[in-house]
Nucleic acid binder design. Structure first.
Lengths: 202, 202
DNA sequence: TAAAGTAACTGAACATCGTTCATAATTCAA
DNA sequence: TTGAATTATGAACGATGTTCAGTTACTTTA
């Protein structure tokens, strides 16, 4: 048996999350199991339940970290002095690149369902909002006469679109292959949408 | 024991699919199990495996029928003599209404993953293509100078966008409630995209 | 009518899953 | 040194998908 001072609670917690991330990256959501995680960190199942409420809890925390990494990468890959429209496109490309580099971990954010009628945790909503905010911020300087409400709508519509392309492409529902095609399609969507939204040539 | 002439293979096949659809509608993808389906039609698990290769096979066939119903509904709800742009919007609204009326059955199309590295069945691709074709057909009269390839791209970009809104809304990732809000957001996306795509005010 | 043959169906068995909890092992305090 | 507190274990439970030897029901043959 591992000695009780080998690892603190916090260390086990961290080790389990890392191990889970590795398993998901390599084997996907379906390949994740409590016993696998426990085995990977040299403990048994029981120990996992001292540190997490249950598997859902563990998955939720993995997803939380994935959302954090995604947000960080989207921020980091922004070129600070580029025009807003270009930065908007960069956000889309970052998103797609992230999803493509680790499709299983990205996918688990959307594959995992919260237990029946236990509503989405507040912090999860916050992290999603945070992403929309990123889009809104780039949209604002382009929006001209549009109201704040319209900008919020535009961010959600546009970003759902990017997400839609991404998820259909990755789960092989679109008939396109390769990151560049996906990014091309995304650019196509964004270009036309922004042309319509900005100039309002109506 | 059920007598061997009680039901033909085909009847059992049909009964199982119907029972599975009911279970999925009421309890979602996660609530589906071989024993539940078998129990619901008055047979045991073993019998199910005389009629289906495995659960994946059964799920795939349920999804196939869902795609058929979706396609039929989208076709049926088109008003034949409306302008192309309006019919395009109708397609979007049909899609959202369908997803909203039976979210679990619609959702299973996208939740279910094909077993590792067994690629998407050809007939599945066909049924997805069939849907894009519907969009392309409405897009064509609006497309002006755009090439066939650009129309195909537009259909995929636009429809991925509609799907993205739909899936994020239904899985509670957008902060909007109710069908009408979702349809409003979809209209917003389509309007701006089409403004950009059609007039090409560039 | 009796026996043999065939098709239909069963359900116990296997490995794996999430989850629990009495028990054992280890450390700490007195 | 001893007793209390902490920490980890792993067997157990009820699910899951899947298989397949065995039983039952029906059909054909003699």
């Amino acid at each position: 048996m591992a000695r009780r001072s080998d690892h603190s609670r916090e260390e086990i917690h961290e080790m389990a999350l890392s191990a889970a991330e590795k398993i998901v990256r390599e084997q996907g959501y379906g390949g994740l199991s409590a016993r696998k995680v426990a085995g990977a960190i040299g403990y048994t199942v029981g120990t996992l339940y001292l540190v997490f409420d249950n598997l859902d809890d563990l998955i939720l925390q993995v997803n939380s970290r994935t959302l954090d990494r995604l947000h960080a990468q989207m921020l980091q890959e922004q070129s600070a002095h580029a025009p807003a429209r270009e930065r908007l496109l960069q956000l889309g490309h970052s998103y797609i690149r992230f999803a493509n580099e680790d499709p299983h971990r990205w996918g688990m954010i959307f594959e995992h369902r919260f237990p029946p009628e236990q509503e989405t945790p507040a912090w999860f909503r916050v992290k999603v909002e945070r992403m929309f905010a990123l889009v809104e911020a780039r949209l604002e300087p382009l929006a001209g006469e549009h109201s704040a409400n319209e900008i919020a709508q535009a961010a959600r519509a546009l970003w759902s679109g990017v997400h839609g392309i991404c998820i259909l492409a990755i789960t092989d529902r679109l008939d396109i292959a390769g990151v560049s095609s996906v990014q091309q399609l995304t650019q196509f969507l964004m270009d036309n949408f922004l042309d319509g939204f900005i100039s309002g040539c109506n």
